[in-house]
């Protein structure tokens, strides 16, 4: 993953960058599987590596193929990145060790849900049960966000009202 990330930064061809970010997504999907988060890995592989790569390529077709090279020294961005990285590392010091049984998630929430789900909902996949039932409001919000995002993109780039006459022309061409 580190190698892929560095090549994304180094590469100048946008086509290579899009492909490499797809690779990066796939690798992070593997990481999620390693963490036993199969649902998240599934999403990452489908959305990150699949759809977003295709959409990025679609965007690429609208713009230029390569990045403009910028030779100025970029001290401030580097500082910001290093500072954020250091903060994140500092934050991980407080986290319980990987797979530790004493972690708060394992002692309170996890067992509680696992005990309640067979009686309340009786669905084998606990993730689905939590996502759709216990956290139903939240998921409704997520769907609303997806809906809003879709409408926003449509408003911004598809220009429905403007294109309607052209579409009709296309149809006529198709029929004749």
């Amino acid at each position: 993953m580190v190698v892929t990330a560095i090549s994304v930064v180094r590469a100048r061809s946008l086509f290579a960058i899009v492909t490499l970010s797809g690779v990066f997504s796939l690798l992070s999907a593997l990481l999620f599987i390693r963490l036993d988060a199969v649902d998240v890995a599934f999403t990452e592989a489908a959305v990150g590596a699949g759809i977003s790569t295709v959409l990025m390529l679609g965007t690429l077709a609208l713009t230029s193929r390569s990045e403009r090279s910028d030779k100025r020294p970029q001290i401030i961005p580097l500082l910001a990145v290093v500072a954020t990285g250091a903060l994140l590392f500092y934050a991980t010091l407080d986290m319980p060790n990987f797979g530790s049984l004493d972690a708060p998630a394992q002692t309170h929430l996890g067992p509680d849900f696992l005990e309640r789900i067979p009686g309340d909902i009786d669905v084998p996949n606990a993730v689905t049960a939590i996502l759709a039932s216990y956290r139903g409001f939240d998921t409704l919000g997520e769907v609303a966000v997806v809906f809003t995002a879709g409408i926003g993109v449509l408003m911004l780039i598809s220009r429905l009202a403007l294109r309607r006459p052209e579409d009709e022309e296309d149809d006529q061409e198709g029929s004749t």
Binding site: D39, A41, F42, T43, V123, N125, T128, A129, L131
Partner: peptide
């Protein structure tokens, strides 16, 4: 409900 995955 039974295996990984869902609506998204």
């Amino acid at each position: 409900d039974y295996s990984p995955g869902g609506g998204f």
